[in-house]
Design a binder for these strands. Structure first.
Lengths: 333, 333
DNA sequence: CGGAGTCATGCAAGCGCTATCATTACCCCC
DNA sequence: GGGGGTAATGATAGCGCTTGCATGACTCCG
C-alpha cells in the first residue's frame, strides 16, 4: 500500500524490490512452485508493496498465448445460447482466461470481421455458433488456435464441433407427437440451417409414420415471444386449425400459449404447443411447456475441456462431441 | 493468396514485400491518409499477398492502448442490461474495439477479480453495472483508463456514471398507481441497492400521498418469471389481497400475470401488475404490461461517446449523465 | 537562387513480459 | 573426495508492434 510512482509498476520494479531477477518473478507468477518458498514470499511482498498488476498484453506477446477465447453468438436477447455462454464465461474466468464476446448478427460479414479481430488478438480459441461460409473456412484454415463450432454437428467440422443432431430432434418430436395422437401439426420455423434441419427431420419422420402434409410458418431469427401474435393470426386463417404448434424456441411457444389463451382456446386440449431448448420459463409457464432439453452448460464444459487439452499441447481425441438432447413431456403438448 | 510461410506473417514481411519500412506500414494501418496513395496501394497489395493479420497484442503493448473495453454485468439470463450490452458490443465492434465480457454474479469478489483481469489487459475502459465496494474503489483509483458506472447515478461517481434515479422511478410509479385509484399495493423487491432505492422511493411517495403501509415480498436477484409462483402464493396468504403488484422486472410481472390468470383472476380488474424495464415481452404480453422504460441503448451510446472522447485525450465534461426514464401505461395496471 | 516549410518515409529505441540457456550451490553415493 | 545429479536463479534475446526524431526530396517565395 505504498505510494506508487506515476507510471504503472512493472516486473522490473517488483524484481528489484524483491532482490531477484525478473525471470524469477515471472516464474513465480506463472508457476509458483518452481521458486523457493522463501523467495516466493519476498516476491509476494514486493508485489503487494508495489501494487503490481501483470501486463497480460506483454505476457501474451512473449508467450504466444493470450489466455483469451472468443465467443461468437448471433445476439444476446432471448438467446438459446445463454446457458452455454454463462457457463463458459464463468468457468473460463475462474481459470484466468478472459472472454472476448462477439455478436455476429446473422450476416456472414460480421462473423468474418469478428474472427479476424479474434485472430488479431491471438486468442487461444474461438467458439462459434455461426454457420461457416466458404470465406470463413479460409480464415479458420489460418487460425493457429482451436476453432470450436458449437450447437451443431456438421459432417466435416473444421477442427471440433460440440453439439447434437438437429435432424434427430425433429424426428423425435414427430414421433412423440404422433404417439400422443396429434394429427395436424404446424411447424414454425426460423431461418437458419439448424432450424431447417429440425424441420426437415420432423417432416421426414412425420410422413414416414404415415402423417400427412405439414404446413410451415416462418419467423425471423431469433424467434421470440413477440412473433407469436402474427403466427397465431396466420394459423387462424388456415383452412383447418392445427392441433399442435411446433415452435423453434420456448419463448415463442410461450407466446403462442398466451395468444391461444387470450383467444379463449384451452391449451393443450384445443391447441397443443411444443417448444425447444428447455428455457427456464418452460418449466414455470402455465401450462408448463413440453420441450426439448439441450444441456447448454455441458456444451460449454466440453468446449472448455478441449481448449485446456489443446493448450497443454495435447491432440484432439475427436472431431465431434455429441451431447444429445432429451424430450421433456410436460403439460402443453 | 500466395503460400504462406509456416509462421504468421508480420509487419516486417509486409514491409519487405512492399519495399517500405515497417514504420510506414504501421502508419498505413493506423491512419492510411498519412502515407502517399501509391505507397498505400503497394502496401495493400502486400497485405493481401501475405494474408497479414496485425498482432493487436504487440500493437497494444507498444501504443499503450488496447482497443478493448471490459463490460461487467451480473449475469446474462433475463438480464435487464441486455439491450445495453447488445448495443455496446455492436457499436464498439464496428469501431474495431473488442469487448471483454465479465459476469460478476452478485459477489464483490468476482467483481474485483474481473476488474483486475481487465486492468491486466490494459483495457481502455471498464463499464460496470456492479455496485462499488471500498476495495473496488481502491482498484479503480489506480486504473489509468476510464471507469464508467452504468444503470446507476450515485452521489459521487468515481469518474463517470450513466444512468437514472431509481428513487425517482419509485416515486413516479407510486404517484401513477395512486392516480389510477389503486389502494393496496404490494412491492416485490429484489436484493440489491438499485431495487432498494426504487422501493424506498415508492414507499416514500406513497405515504406522502396519504397511502398506507406497503407490504413487501422479496425475491433473489435476478428476479425472473419463475419466481412468480412463490410470490403469488405468498400474496394469497396475505390478510387482504393487494390490488396491484409492483414488480422489479417485466419478466417477473409476466409471471405474476400468468399465475393470476391460472388462478382465475382477471388482470388488471382483480389484480393489476406493474413491471420495470420495458422488455420486449412487456408490449407483447396479453394483457400488455404497464412498465417503466429505460433507454438501455442510449446508456450504451453515452458510455461509448465518453470513451471516444477520453481516448482522443479529451477531458470528461461531466460526471453524471442522466438518461431518465418513461412510465409506459399499458393494460396490466 | 538559397533558406524556410511541407510531405513522405526511414531508423531505432522501446513497450513489459517469457523462455532458453548457462551458472551456481548443494547433495548423494561409491 | 570427486563425479553426477538436481534444484534455484540469473542473463539475455526476442515477441511484433508504435512513435519520436532524423532525413531527404520537393515546393514556394522573397
Amino acid at each position: 500500500m505504498n505510494e506508487i510512482a506515476n507510471r504503472n509498476p512493472t516486473l522490473d520494479d517488483v524484481a528489484a524490490l524483491a532482490g531477484v531477477s525478473t525471470a524469477t518473478v515471472s516464474r513465480y507468477l506463472n508457476n509458483p512452485k518452481v521458486v523457493a518458498s522463501a523467495t516466493g514470499e519476498r516476491i509476494r511482498e514486493a508485489i503487494a508493496q508495489t501494487g503490481y498488476i501483470p501486463n497480460l498484453l506483454a505476457g501474451g506477446l512473449a508467450s504466444q498465448k493470450s489466455k483469451m477465447v472468443a465467443v461468437l453468438i448471433p445476439h444476446l436477447t432471448d438467446s438459446i445460447f445463454n446457458d452455454t455462454i454463462q457457463t463458459m464465461a464463468e468457468e473460463l474466468a475462474s481459470a484466468g482466461t478472459t472472454v472476448m464476446m462477439g455478436l455476429t448478427g446473422v450476416t456472414q460479414e460480421r462473423t468474418d470481421q469478428l474472427i479476424l479481430a479474434a485472430m488479431g488478438r491471438r486468442v487461444d480459441a474461438i467458439i462459434s455458433t455461426a454457420p461457416l461460409g466458404p470465406q470463413t473456412r479460409d480464415l479458420i484454415e489460418r487460425f493457429p488456435g482451436l476453432f470450436i463450432q458449437i450447437w451443431e454437428l456438421p459432417e466435416d467440422p473444421p477442427q471440433l464441433a460440440v453439439g447434437f443432431s438437429h435432424r434427430d430432434v425433429g424426428r423425435d418430436v414427430a414421433r412423440f407427437l404422433q404417439s400422443r395422437g396429434y394429427r395436424r401439426p404446424v411447424l414454425v420455423t426460423a431461418e437458419g440451417t439448424r432450424a431447417r434441419m429440425r424441420s426437415d427431420g420432423f417432416v421426414e419422420e412425420w410422413q414416414a409414420l404415415g402423417g400427412g402434409n405439414v404446413p410451415e410458418l416462418s419467423v425471423e431469427v431469433p424467434s421470440r415471444f413477440g412473433h407469436a401474435r402474427r403466427i397465431f393470426a396466420e394459423m387462424r386463417r388456415m383452412a383447418e386449425l392445427p392441433d399442435v404448434v411446433v415452435c423453434g424456441s420456448d419463448h415463442l411457444a410461450q407466446g403462442v400459449i398466451v395468444e391461444a389463451q387470450a383467444a379463449g382456446l384451452r391449451v393443450p386440449d384445443q391447441l397443443a404447443v411444443m417448444g425447444f431448448g428447455n428455457a427456464q420459463i418452460a418449466g414455470d409457464m402455465r401450462p408448463t411447456i413440453t420441450t426439448v432439453d439441450i444441456d447448454g452448460a455441458r456444451i460449454a464444459r466440453e468446449a472448455i475441456a478441449a481448449i485446456r487439452q489443446h493448450g497443454a499441447g495435447g491432440k484432439l481425441l475427436t472431431h465431434k462431441v455429441d451431447v444429445g438432447f432429451r424430450l421433456i413431456a410436460r403439460e402443453s403438448a
